[in-house]
Amino acid sequence: MSKILIKIDGREFEASEGMTILQAAKEVGVEIPTLCYYEKLEPYGGCRLCTVEAEIRGRSKLVAACLYPVEKDLIVRTRTEKVDQIRKMLLELMLAHAPASRDLQAYAEEYGADKNRFQKESSFCIHCGLCVRYCAEIKKKEVITFVDRGTNREISFIPEIASQECENCKECFPLCPTEALQAAYVLTQALSFPSLQSVTE
């Protein structure tokens, strides 16, 4: 695979064609925060925490590092004032749902995010989709799905499949960046009261 010269935070690196900014940065030890990223899964671009500034041919734009492919003469800035401001706000928005999440709290400290800035709506879920995608892409079981849309979007276990598959797997639990218990809770509820599981509630 051919090599491309790129610049990350002022230092020059060689990256391979086809890599994303996030992969290239990881390889050379530059940290970019992520929540919905997991190397075994297709990149998703949902949390936007990996937003960085990418400059190409003199034009700068904000992009998601987990999706943006490296290209020749790309200049990446991972910690500009703008990038930090965006990350801080994103963390504050997510903390309104999962104030107790350790991952979120650690990042909040780094970016000075205030977990009480927004009205709390403790759903625990930040819709990173790791459980949904892991179950579909790796386990090929497709037990968990997103239902509904917009601000009503939720995750939901499909009871009929969950009752057969989940007991011996539960591999998605530790992936959850908010509360592994949340997944377990939704699952238990689905298994115990399948008839109450209305996907449109």
């Binding site: 936007r48 994103l90 997510m94 749902h97 819709h127 509904d148 917009g150 601000t151 979007r153």
Partner: peptide, 15 residues
């Protein structure tokens, strides 16, 4: 808030 997909944090949570 009702007509977006709800996939990404800024749009879903910001809205």
């Amino acid at each position: 808030s009702e007509e977006s997909c709800g996939k990404c944090v800024p749009c879903r949570e910001g809205v």
